[in-house]
Structures are given as C-alpha cells and as structure tokens.
C-alpha cells in the first residue's frame, strides 16, 4: 500500500531565505547543490515557492526590517515542516550581538528545530544538518496523524493503531461519567 508517512522524507523540497546575512553562508548553500557535495542525491530541489516546500533554510541575524517577511513565509508553508538555522549569526547573533538594528537569532520569532554552527559553515556541516532534519520530519509526519483530544489513551501494536480497544476505553469512560451524573441528580 502507498504509505505517505514512509515516503515523505524521500523527496524534501527546500526554501531558502536570507534575513540580513553577509552572504558567506548563502554561497556555501549554493556550493552544496553543486556537483562536488551534491544535496540532490537526497531528493532535494530548490524552488522559490513556499507553498510547495518542506524544509526552510534561513541565514543571517534578523534585522528590524526583514522580520515581517520571515514570519509571513513561515506561516505560508504547509505542515509538517522543519526549520534549519544555518551559521553562527542565525543561532545566536554571532559577531553582531547587541548591535542596534539586530534582533539576536531567529529563536525569538519562529520555532527552530536544528542549529548548524560555523562562520561560515561548510557544506559538510550543512549535509549533517539536513540529514538530522529529515529524521525529525519523519517523526513529525507520524505525530500529525495521531488523534489526541478525541480518544482518551493511545494504544499501539507494532506501529499500527488498535482502534477497537481505543473505542472501548472511550465507551467505559463515558459510562463512568454518566453514572456520576446520575448520582449527582439523585443527591
């Protein structure tokens, strides 16, 4: 059967945005799509469209003028999605910490999953970051299909949900609630 959870991590498409950096990390991202360190072996394609991508690569410390565009791009991407912060400036401000137009790091605006260090990072570290982000993407893709609020407890056998037992546990819980209400009405 065609299982979307297993095959979603085989072709992640990336979106790249520069939020005020010095371009060192951007040319290393471009060099990691080049023939020597080939990210396209993992199925990665660089499109410029936020509605068609899974992985968000950000570089640069967030300046005061480019923070609205960053949050708009993050909300336009469909979930499940992963955010990777490339370079020391993106993780915590780098050399520009405490300068007057810089908000240190993108932690303050959007939730980040993977931090890649270095100034400027090398393509080897970027490939490490992308491989780790793909494992987190697979885990998020499984969590998104688990219903949480409707059923009381989640019972799983060998990775497959056991729906009959979960329905039985809800039925027992609703019988208890009905019994408590009828006791209160009598009192």
């Amino acid at each position: 059967m065609f299982d979307l959870k297993k095959y979603r991590k085989k072709s992640p498409w990336i979106l790249h945005y520069n939020a005020g950096s010095c371009n060192g990390c951007d040319i290393e991202i471009l060099a990691s799509l080049a023939p020597k360190y080939d990210l396209e072996r993992f199925g990665v394609l660089n499109t410029g469209n936020p509605k068609q991508s899974d992985v968000f690569l950000v570089t640069g410390p967030v300046t005061f003028r480019s923070r609205e565009r960053l949050v708009e791009l993050y909300t336009q991407m469909p979930s499940p999605k992963v955010v990777i912060a490339v370079g020391s400036c993106t993780c915590s401000g780098g050399v520009f910490r405490d300068m007057y137009n810089v908000e240190d790091g993108i932690d303050n605006y959007i939730p980040v999953d993977v931090y890649v260090p270095g100034c400027a990072s090398s393509p080897e570290l970027i490939i490490d970051g992308v491989v780790k982000a793909l494992e987190i993407l697979e885990q998020k893709s499984k969590e998104i299909e688990l219903p949480k609020k409707l059923f009381g407890t989640i019972k799983e056998e060998e990775g497959v949900l056991n729906l009959r037992e979960m329905a039985l546990s809800v039925a027992q819980k609703s019988e208890q609630i009905n019994a408590q209400k009828s006791e209160q009405n009598e009192n």
Binding site: C91, S92, G93, D104, G105, D107, V112, D113, V114, Y115, V116, P117, G118, S122, E124, L125, D128, G129, K132, I136
Partner: peptide, 16 residues
C-alpha cells in the same frame, strides 16, 4: 574536530 549540530534544548540563545 568539527563542531556538533544542536537541537532544541541545547544552551544556544536564551539560556546564554
């Protein structure tokens, strides 16, 4: 040695 990749929970920005 190359530096390690960080995930949520490491001491990166607000704890520093």
């Amino acid at each position: 040695k190359k530096p390690q990749i960080g995930v949520k929970g490491d001491r990166v920005n607000s704890e520093w």
